[in-house]
Computed example of a mutant assay.
Amino acid sequence: MSLFLTYVLAGLSIAMPVGAITVEMTKQGLKKGFMQGWAVGLGGMTIDVILIFALYMGLASVLSIPYIQLPMWLVGAGFLFLIGYDSIKNADQGIILDGEKSDATFFSTYRNGIVVALSPGNLVFWISVFGAVLADSYDANEKASFLIVGAGILTGILLHDIGLLSIVSITRKAMNRTMIKWFSIVAGVVLIGFAMYFIYNFIDGVSSYL
């Protein structure tokens, strides 16, 4: 139990820094409500589960190869730039104020979470984070403990998502359509900022080989 609780805290720590999923989740939570924001988080967690399994099977060693990693940073930047641009362009669309009914389906927003999480650069970033945390816990003779660690990390991320969206759902009650629109614009700028960070990693990686 102590091992599980330790890695629940690790999962919370991993989820705390603002990332592309957090930005998209908060944006959808403000525009469309708790369930739509949580759908984004669940989409991201679906990829997290796959990543943990893939790391367990040895994917981290493959993605650590520079010739594979570098193009993923660049493609990831393109993904996030497009998502950020769309967030700015459609900032005033799809806003559902408190008490109104959303016409967006849970699955469509869940799919958005998967798309953001599947951004190649985002995968490289999260695999480096997961890899650092999970590498210390992996023991070929104690595979069950690795699963406990993975479950603890996912539980921590889930608690973070629920806590964040609870705050968002309370906050949106005091926000009008214009305020939510501007938050969507800011979210788009932040996502483009992540795209620029991925481009920086690409350039830095290339320059190290020149």
Rank of each mutant, 00 (worst) to 15 (best):
V168T: 08
M16N: 10
G44Y: 01
L159E: 00
F183T: 09
I21C: 07
G188Y: 02
A54L: 15
A117N: 13
Q69N: 14
W182P: 09
Y138M: 11
T109W: 01
L97S: 04
V190L: 13
W126Q: 14
T105A: 07
L134A: 06
K143F: 05
K32V: 09
Y200H: 09
L158E: 10
Y7W: 06
F4E: 08
G76I: 04
K89W: 00
V206D: 15
D92W: 00
V23Q: 05
Q28Y: 02
K181S: 13
L191V: 09
A54W: 10
F34E: 03
G58W: 01
F125I: 10
G99P: 03
S13P: 07
A39G: 10
L30A: 01
Q36T: 08
D204S: 14
F106H: 13
V190F: 02
I68E: 11
F79T: 14
K27H: 04
M179Q: 15
L82Y: 02
Y197T: 15
A195G: 15
K27P: 03
G94P: 13
I153M: 06
R177H: 09
S102I: 04
I148E: 10
K31E: 06
N201I: 05
M45W: 05
L210H: 05
L123G: 14
L42I: 14
I148M: 09
N90R: 09
I68F: 12
I192G: 04
G41W: 02
S166N: 06
L97P: 08
Y56M: 11
G163D: 02
S207Q: 11
I180P: 05
V149D: 01
F130E: 10
I14L: 15
Q69G: 11
P17H: 05
G43K: 05
L51K: 06
Y110F: 15
S64D: 15
A174P: 00
A20Q: 09
A77T: 06
